[in-house]
Structure formats: structure tokens, C-alpha cells
């Protein structure tokens, strides 16, 4: 039986190779399209609950609000870069699969305020470092900054390991805590008092994403 299949393939080798190449190309195209479509802020905001994250992203230097006007894709900071397999491995190893499900799961059920406490888990330091390559030596960074960065490096691969986001809060999302509050106040006292703020944010978002 198997022999027959092999013989068949052999006789139609050319067609099979072409089909293989075609399927391969189709896959790459799909991956390319998929990765690019799902990389920008327009895709991410499809899910309504992302509005505070996207709005605060637009106010940050990484979201187009800086002098350089650079717009860093969401996935650069939030998804690992080397390869998908490695991603799954590291996640499984660190036992944070649950965290990933939490992060990519049903956003309505997520307490985004509380979720920020584990920000070092869903921010990918390699992403930051791929741009901020000389963060331990850059003479333009303050003395304290350099000292902290060496501290960060010294904790790498220990049980005390921390992430860039452990210290750099609201990077990528300027005013994140306030934005989250406009959508869902942390304290009862503020209930219903942010409606006009939220409206303004919503309007601004529609404007930028047009």
C-alpha cells in the first residue's frame, strides 16, 4: 500500500513539488498577513475592552506621541520574538500558561486594575531591548537609571528576576491607570463621575483610528 503511494508520488514528482511550494507560499502569505493584520492598534481594538489600553497607547511616546513619532506595534512589546515554539516552551516552563489564557481570554471577566500587578509577565523584555540596545551603558540615561539597569541584569536568571515593566510602569500606555478608571472606577466614590471623560476618550479614539 505505502509502496504504491510512493510510486505514485514518484511519477508525479513535479506536480507534488509544485503543490508543496504553492501550499508553502500560501501559508507564508497567511502568516504574513495574519501577523501584520493582528499587529496594529486597529486590530487590537476590535475587542471593545481594549479601548483604555489603546487610548493610553496613543498618548505614549511609543504610540506616536513622541518627538520621533514612532509607533511600536502592540506585539513587539507583548509577544515573544524568537519563535512560537519557544514561546510555548517558556510559558509552559514558567507555569504561566494560565496567565496567558488570562491575558488573551475573555477581557470582560478580567480585572484590568489588578492584572497590572503582574505586568512583568505579559511584557516581553527582549522587545524593549531590541530597540533600547545599550540600556546598561547609554550615557544619556541618568546615573540612577544605569545603576538600576545593572541591578536588573544582576537579577536575571535568579528567582528574584524582574522585568523592564516592574519599574517602568505605564510605558507604552501613558496614563493607563487613569484611562482604566474612566472606563471602570477603582473606588466606589468615583462611580458615574467619569462619564464625560470617557466620552472624550471615546471620541478621540474614533478620530485617531479613522
Amino acid at each position: 500500500m505505502i509502496k504504491k503511494v510512493f510510486l505514485f508520488i514518484k511519477s508525479k514528482l513535479f506536480i507534488f513539488v509544485m503543490a508543496g511550494v504553492f501550499i508553502g507560499l500560501l501559508f507564508s502569505l497567511g502568516m504574513y498577513e495574519g501577523l501584520h493584520r493582528t499587529s496594529n492598534d486597529k486590530f487590537c481594538i476590535v475587542c471593545h475592552e481594549m479601548a483604555p489600553m489603546v487610548a493610553s497607547y496613543h498618548s505614549n511616546v511609543h504610540g506616536g506621541a513622541g518627538k520621533s513619532g514612532i509607533k511600536v506595534a502592540c506585539v513587539t512589546c507583548h509577544l515573544p520574538h524568537d519563535n512560537v515554539l519557544n514561546y510555548i516552551y517558556t510559558k509552559a516552563k514558567n507555569g504561566v500558561v494560565e496567565g496567558a489564557i488570562h491575558f488573551f481570554g475573555n477581557p470582560d471577566a478580567i480585572d484590568w486594575h489588578k492584572n497590572r500587578q503582574r505586568r512583568d509577565e505579559f511584557v516581553v523584555d527582549e522587545g524593549c531591548i531590541s530597540c533600547h540596545t545599550n540600556y546598561t551603558t547609554n550615557p544619556n540615561i541618568s546615573e540612577k537609571g544605569i545603576k538600576m539597569h545593572k541591578h536588573y541584569v544582576s537579577l536575571q536568571d535568579t528567582d528574584k528576576q524582574i522585568g523592564c515593566a516592574s519599574c517602568h510602569v505605564e510605558i507604552g500606555h501613558k496614563g493607563l491607570r487613569s484611562m482604566l478608571n474612566y472606563y471602570k472606577p477603582e473606588y466606589e466614590f468615583y462611580d458615574g463621575k467619569f462619564d464625560s471623560k470617557k466620552e472624550a476618550v471615546e471620541k478621540q479614539l474614533l478620530e485617531t483610528l479613522k
Partner: peptide, 10 residues
């Protein structure tokens, strides 16, 4: 101050 900006509303 900016990090707690939402509190400025009240």
C-alpha cells in the same frame, strides 16, 4: 501627579 490624574476630576 499624572499617574493619579483621574483623581483630579474630584
Amino acid at each position: 501627579a499624572d499617574r493619579l490624574k483621574f483623581m483630579d476630576v474630584l
